[in-house]
């Protein structure tokens, strides 16, 4: 399989593959691209500023953490899937 990404971050049971694109300089937000078997389209997304990925599951979720002055926020997100 040939994927134009820096690293494979997660794989979903639905055949989607989340690739991490080459990180930009400095604090540029991380950009991910989702590919899916059988689809000739791809969907990209960026993590909101301050969110750092901490995990993923095969059900199509990635987890991020954000450290705030008053505490820690962990968020579960559903990644977009190409049609």
């Amino acid at each position: 399989m040939e994927l134009p990404c820096y690293a494979i971050y997660a794989v979903g049971k639905d055949g989607s593959v989340v690739g991490l694109d080459i990180p930009g300089p400095g604090d540029a937000p991380l950009h991910f691209t989702v590919y899916r078997e059988g689809s000739r389209r791809a969907v990209g997304f960026v993590l909101p500023q301050g969110e750092f990925p901490t995990g993923a599951d095969a059900e199509g979720h990635i987890y991020t953490m954000r450290v705030r002055e008053d505490g820690l926020v962990v968020t579960r997100w559903r990644w977009p899937v190409p049609e």
Partner: peptide, 11 residues
């Protein structure tokens, strides 16, 4: 492949 940008949906 053409890449469309999409938002992440918080769960």
């Amino acid at each position: 492949l053409p890449v469309e940008e999409a938002p992440l949906n918080p769960v």
